[in-house]
Design a protein around this nucleic acid. Sequence first.
DNA 1: TTGCTCCTCACGTCACGTGAGGTGGC
DNA 2: TTGCTCCTCACGTCACGTGAGGTGGC
Lengths: 258, 258
Amino acid sequence: MDEKRYTSGELAAAAGLSVRAVQHYDNIGLLPSSGRTEGGRRYYIQDDLIRLEQIVFYKMLNFSLAQIKDQLLMQPNTVELLEMFKTQQLLILQKIEQLHTSFATIGVMSRIVEIGKEPPFHILLSFLNALPMNDIFAKAPNMLTAEQHEALSPYFQDIDKIQSFYHKWKEISIEATVLLYDGISPEDQLAQNLAKRWWDMFFDLTGGNLDLLEQLSTLTLSSQLLDKNKEMMEATNIYIQKASSIYAENNKLPLKIK
Amino acid sequence: MDEKRYTSGELAAAAGLSVRAVQHYDNIGLLPSSGRTEGGRRYYIQDDLIRLEQIVFYKMLNFSLAQIKDQLLMQPNTVELLEMFKTQQLLILQKIEQLHTSFATIGVMSRIVEIGKEPPFHILLSFLNALPMNDIFAKAPNMLTAEQHEALSPYFQDIDKIQSFYHKWKEISIEATVLLYDGISPEDQLAQNLAKRWWDMFFDLTGGNLDLLEQLSTLTLSSQLLDKNKEMMEATNIYIQKASSIYAENNKLPLKIK
DNA sequence: TTGCTCCTCACGTCACGTGAGGTGGC
DNA sequence: TTGCTCCTCACGTCACGTGAGGTGGC
């Protein structure tokens, strides 16, 4: 009894791919056809379709064809598989962080262009280079003092919360850098708007727990940076601290910053 | 008086690129050298460095070299520029969403592999295909009833909150689909754990405002899908509703779901 | 004169898309 | 016999990296 046979077109349709892609997978040995007809056409069987579905699935998880072929479909043991998954997740988080930085920076650019100013490319570029592009999730603990870490850990459980916090932190810092190099005073309304967002960011993280805010407001995420970039980060941090202090006083926030 | 001249190596170092990249930009006309020495070597002037910094900056914002050359550096007017920025931000959000889906799905895979099960590739793949891959930010309003929209809008101001909500929704839905096709009852502890996360997700969004939870819990994000995929989404939604109802009863949550 | 920098081909990367020109299979 | 599917080259995509073999410039 014969098994059901598929042409490459049928296989492609079933998996949502192009015929060309299926041919490509045959060529690189990722999904060899089960044989050829007398006329030289590829045919596939049921097992091939199952393998193809696994290929497509792993592709959607951002694995390369080489990884799929040589590692994922080679019956790895559980430990190896989990290892690959973890590595892949870290890579994905890093890409997400970069994209978020781009997103925020474009937002800043938009606001600059809207008010008819020339964007300070050099400053913005320095800032982007100064950002710790490595993932904050692995590094975050190293950026905090032990005291801060203890105070914060209950709020850093939820990965989305950390991300949200870090994204806001990045966005506010970029804008602060621009204001600073524009010679805008920390007392200016523009800086005070930033200061409000700064406080909101912390309120949001702690759910309004005031006890932690003083502790937290000393948080700076400058890590191992080039000296030149470090200087710029420091200057930005100081600027934000100043603006935040002024905001806290004016709005009688029940806390103070050194 | 001569201007300061840079060799391609100096320019590359100043911008953090390779010499090869600078040569490439010359070749494609993105950054033509200001001239050649008698020996045939490229040289650049101060203006070239400024242009290069703009190029590098836009590259970090995920624009292509072609876009940078033909659109961004061609002195576009404000409207055109803002248009490009907006488009780019949308593209970035879409990429982020895809990456988040991959991240969550790998998490689900890890948990399946950890308990020694065979991953249900076919099911997972169908689920991924059923997800509205287009950006939810443009589409979100269409997925809600007018009533839901009114109730939710105060909570959808913060883009990070929407993202966080959507990511959790995706993750829980994937896991629910797996449980469902594994024949696990909604009363099972595994499903009840999911139900807890489901409620937590809503509590988190509304900040604990109970009035909205009933309204919200009817939320389903199935949009324009293929019929086959729609069926699977519906089944998953019903499964989650069941598990959530049971959870609400058992834990005496002050609300009920139809 | 000795290193070091920079030069120009030209192929490789990654996952196919896109013709061109030909033919199998119902 | 007529369409439609599938076949094999082979080049194109994107932003360079990486040699190979040669030479400018201090």
